[in-house]
Amino acid sequence: MGSTLKGIFSVGFGYSMLRVTTPILFAALGAVVSEKAGAVNIGLEGLMLISGVTGVIVSAWTQSAWLGLLAGLVLAVLFALFMGYFHIKLGTDMVLAGIAMNVIASGGTVFALFVASGDRGISSSLASKVLPTVELPLINKIPVIGPILSGHNVLTYFALLAVVGVWYFLYRTPLGLRLRAVGESPDSADSVGISVSKMRFLALGISGFLAGFGGCHLSMGYVSWFSRDMTAGRGFIGLAASALGGVHPIGTAIASLFFGFADALSNYMQSLSIPSEFVQMIPYLATVAALGVFARRQMSRERKGKKQAGREVA
């Protein structure tokens, strides 16, 4: 136990927590934007897979990680819009559209991988590129904090910037105002001529864009290859983080860090003699537990009126 604690408080743990939080945070921010516009994007998982495999294939072809990233982002956005088309224009239930997206992506990415490399499990036969890591000047000199914050993949810093960016967009720009109005009261937006469909398309596009970063981080940063279903539920965890964070970028970032913590913990504890299955269960159990606690708190808040009444009667 003592060694576990030491491990958690080590610099290496702090670093790896930020690293594993990155893809979750991207997914979670994607979930926030689409949910603010009134669409629960359950297809994040699939969108991440699509951008992940695209990044690997294109970076191998072009020998440029950045072109790979660009292609991954473009495809993730296009598929998000494709899903959006069915939901917004043709009336497919958003959750089912998301599930369909995930089905298409989980098979389609393997199919694409097979066509591109002749392999169906992992892309190691492709000479794909990795996005660079960044040493933060000055900060990397600070003891403890430096090694935790510095030397991450460039996308980790993008993720942190994205938190601020999403917040600014949603709460400080006219477009963000419209997007929130569409999510909260589509009729009110409609009545002033704001196109609900356009705003939802925009939200899903941004959501796909963010998920695209998450997917590329997985296959071109976190590791240097794409493997079948490599997202392993991170898109879904992102949804949970958004729910837990009150669908607000800041709260969601904090919730994502918590999931990153659980994920890092499971990686760390694998080196101990605890069955790996249990350790790998931690982030998922944490999500379920957090969801339960969150829902309970919400419910008791709604019942608060009762307590107040009790006081007055007494």
């Binding site: 043709l90 369909a100 089905v103 298409i104 098979g107 389609g108 393997v110 097979f114």
Partner: peptide, 19 residues
């Protein structure tokens, strides 16, 4: 590759549920 069928399935879900 057999995974092609996932694409067919996904499209099927989308079309059938599209009101």
């Amino acid at each position: 590759s057999a995974e092609m069928v996932a694409i067919i399935q996904g499209i099927m879900i989308l079309l059938v549920t599209a009101q």
